[in-house]
Amino acid sequence: MGYACTVLADSVSPAGARITTFEVTFPRLVLAEFNTHRVFSRNSASSRAIPVATQLRRVLEAPYVPAEFGTNQPGMQAGPNLAGERHERARQEWLAARDAAVGHVIGLIAEPGTAPAGASTAELLELVEQLRARIAAKDIPDAWLNVHKQLANRLLEPFMWHTLIVTSTEWENFFHLRAHPDAQPEIQEIAERMRAAYEASTPREVAEGAWHLPLVGEYGGDPAADAALSGDELLKVAVGRCARVSYLTHGGTRDPSADITLHDRLLESAHLSPFEHPARPMTEAELAESAWSGNFRGWHPYRKDIPHEWDALGAEPLVTSG
């Protein structure tokens, strides 16, 4: 893994409002800075969902390692970068911390003779042997504890690459603040890539009543299979595919029926953030009342069509049987 940026859908309404959905990958350590931008609708890869052996393999084989190690000084910006031997020493310290974190995770995850979901015992044993050779001073226990990945994976986050789907109508402030020399280099890198992709992309005209649908048809879907689906089905498929970023699986085989099932399950459980990415142009009547719907300007997110979407606990069930 590494820095990556893809436009998943780019649309413009009859009134000239533009909405863009990206899939981006960047170092997990600047996710909090990305999340301060409240006009964004986001779905992220989840440390709770991805099998721990998968994360272990990633941080062993392709960890995030800073390209620069700025020196300490007052203020939010680092001083001059380390160079030569001092840079290499800092890099080795970072990797040693990674090795120690991986060793502790292996110490947490499984009982003898078992393996966590999604991993074979042989794969875990191979990882253990890699670590024994790599960290001679670290005594990796033979008795493991079967701690869930929702905690065990957290120890790996400073060394992880993070994938996120984000949709917004408002990008200029983000580009101004983050694609800027004063920003932390990790978020500056991905913001510059996003700005370049945004400027190079030509939004597709979407008529009133039609939808902005990430990961459907020409936008990363299966155009032939998706063409056979109804409008309502395509809407559900877009939700399911945006939700799957939590599991990092939507680079695999497309299965519209599975995406629709996932949409229905998320609706029933009121996990509604993936419902924010599909959106339709606001009508003239809607725009006369307000230019905004949720956190979008000129576009109405699918989530806002769900009754009581803001307070599922205090409302009637979102899905009724019969």
Rank of each mutant, 00 (worst) to 15 (best):
E123Y: 06
A9F: 11
L287Y: 06
H180R: 13
A210E: 12
W310L: 15
L156Y: 05
R91C: 03
A101P: 07
P66V: 04
P51S: 02
Q130C: 15
F69R: 02
L262A: 01
E289S: 15
W144H: 12
W161Q: 03
F26C: 05
R303H: 01
L235A: 02
E68I: 07
Q55N: 14
H250Q: 11
V147I: 15
G118F: 06
L8H: 04
V239F: 10
E284H: 10
L56D: 00
T71A: 08
H212P: 11
E111M: 15
E276W: 09
A45Q: 11
R28Q: 08
H104A: 12
D142Y: 10
F69I: 00
H308S: 12
W144L: 14
W211A: 04
S201Y: 12
P317C: 00
G314I: 04
G2N: 07
P51K: 01
V166F: 13
S47P: 03
Y3E: 04
R154Y: 06
V24E: 01
R57A: 12
A200W: 11
K236S: 11
R57D: 10
T202S: 11
F40H: 15
R91W: 01
E218S: 15
I306W: 05
G231H: 07
T21K: 06
L272P: 00
R86W: 12
A67T: 09
E218V: 14
D259I: 10
P301A: 01
A101T: 03
L318C: 02
Q130N: 11
V24L: 14
S273Y: 07
L213N: 08
L235I: 04
A97C: 07
S273T: 07
S246G: 13
Y3G: 04
A210T: 06
E276Q: 10
N72G: 05
A225M: 14
E123L: 11
E316D: 09
D10L: 03
I106D: 00
L127W: 05
A101S: 12
M1R: 03
S168D: 00
R98Y: 08
A136I: 02
V7W: 12
D142G: 15
Y64E: 00
L151I: 15
W94Q: 01
L131P: 02
E309T: 02
A210C: 10
F275D: 00
L29Y: 02
T20N: 03
W292E: 04
Q77I: 13
A143N: 14
E170T: 13
L235W: 01
S230V: 10
S293M: 05
D182N: 12
L95E: 05
L124C: 04
H271Q: 10
E129G: 08
A238T: 09
W144G: 15
M1H: 08
P278E: 00
Y302R: 08
T169D: 02
A270R: 01
F296E: 01
F175C: 05
A9W: 09
V245P: 07
